[in-house]
């Protein structure tokens, strides 16, 4: 069973993402802040991390950098959640070490497809 770490501070979004993932038979662990998220990621070694950009303590980009700076976080698959209108967020996300990005707002159908494809990447490692 695949395990996905969702780092998202907004309850409604966290619930939405978790619901979609779990409905598709994916195990979900979650964090609502950056620093605990980094710690969880390093310790739990999830198959995929869904990282929101705006978080209360440190933002998603910094959190990603911290994970990548740790030996344990080098190979983790991290997907950033970016907003449509925010030019540069995608580039910044990739520069910070994210494997890819997904667009908010979430279109459930498209979302699950993308999640599955990222999990496939992980398989190939």
């Amino acid at each position: 069973m695949k395990r996905v770490l969702v780092i998202e501070d907004n309850d409604a979004n966290l619930y939405l993402i978790s619901y979609i993932l779990m409905s598709n038979g994916i195990d979900v662990i979650s964090c609502k802040e950056g620093l605990p998220g980094v710690e969880t990621a390093l310790v739990e070694q999830p198959d995929l991390i869904v990282m929101d950009i705006q978080l209360p303590d440190i933002n998603g980009l910094e959190a990603t950098q911290r994970i990548r700076n740790d030996e344990r976080g080098k190979d983790l698959v991290i997907v950033a959640l970016t907003s449509y209108a925010m030019t540069g967020d995608r580039e910044k996300a990739l520069a910070a070490g994210c494997t890819g990005y997904m667009e908010k707002p979430i279109n459930p159908e498209k979302f699950i497809g993308e999640i599955n494809s990222y999990l496939e990447i992980e398989k190939n490692y």
Binding site: A12, Q54, K104, N107
Partner: peptide
């Protein structure tokens, strides 16, 4: 403000999508 408006809208659109998908 746009950002703040968008965040709740994300969940509205997301949940509407889930419901429409019949999940």
């Amino acid at each position: 403000m746009s950002h703040e408006l968008r965040t709740p809208l994300n969940s509205i659109i997301g949940f509407t999508g889930i419901l429409l998908m019949g999940m």
